[in-house]
Write a protein that binds this DNA or RNA. Structure first.
Lengths: 131, 131
DNA sequence: GTAACTATGTAATAATATAACAATAAAATT
DNA sequence: AATTTTATTGTTATATTATTACATAGTTAC
């Protein structure tokens, strides 16, 4: 599914483009290497774009892997409720889009009654292929 | 609650000790700095201990913060089902121990029926103090 | 058109983590 | 007790991930 790329700056488009073309999460320096032919030479150029893209929900950071993956959710503005399944063997990562799960977690309240505005959930296991 | 420290090596005890004394998550190099008086001079000494302590569930890594916190759960062997609440203002981190939540997540299955053996969940918000 | 804001380019460096290798110590086996 | 195996330690160097700081340029709002 193609994503709207309006409102994005030149560098943000370049970085998003390379991430969307990758099935798997990409590491920042791998992105940097891949966009050097497009003129982005230094880490801050990549990290700034990444920060913005994460902020607006176009991509998500897989925290346990320090890697970035394009958001494939229909809405694609869900920067605040993310869930992933990660295969510990082949490192395949998939975003989980379960409205049941997201409802459950968005409504979750801890004992002190603290209300959360954001969560990130990472599941680990062995995928079918690797079994 | 004091934790059993049998089976732990010298360096593992030293590192666990410093983490348990801290209310808040500690970063690896902050730990290193703090244990230098005890003779641990180099990063690998700390990282090895951290790896082992994470593996056996004595501590957990807060992935979004690259920091380590002592496990306060009664069982304290829960290395495979972790949930935290993180205040984005004061960076206060608390481990969530809700059997309801852990049951829900441990039983969660995605569309492809992949079964997970591990998860990590991080909630973000503003804590009561900071409100 | 100028002020305020956003984005860019660049160099340097900070922060986080691992590889590789030599040496010791502890546990298990005989 | 000697041997083998396994886990742990110490150390140097380096790899990987991310930010600071500053100069410049483009855009938007008034």
């Amino acid at each position: 599914m193609a994503q709207k790329q309006q409102n994005l700056s030149k560098n943000q488009k370049i970085v998003l483009d390379i991430i969307e073309k990758s099935v798997q999460p990409m590491k920042a320096y791998s992105i940097l290497f891949n966009v050097q032919k497009k003129g982005l030479k230094a880490p801050p150029q990549v990290y700034r774009a990444l920060d913005k893209l994460v902020e607006i929900g176009k991509i998500h950071k897989i925290e346990s892997r320090n890697a970035f993956i394009a958001c494939r959710n229909s809405a694609c503005t869900i920067a605040n409720a993310t869930a992933f399944s990660i295969c510990e063997s082949c490192e395949d990562v998939k975003e989980i889009s379960s409205s049941k799960l997201s409802k459950y977690l968005s409504n979750f309240q801890d004992k002190e009654g603290m209300k959360y505005n954001k969560y990130n959930l990472e599941f680990f296991g062995i995928c079918k292929k690797c079994k």
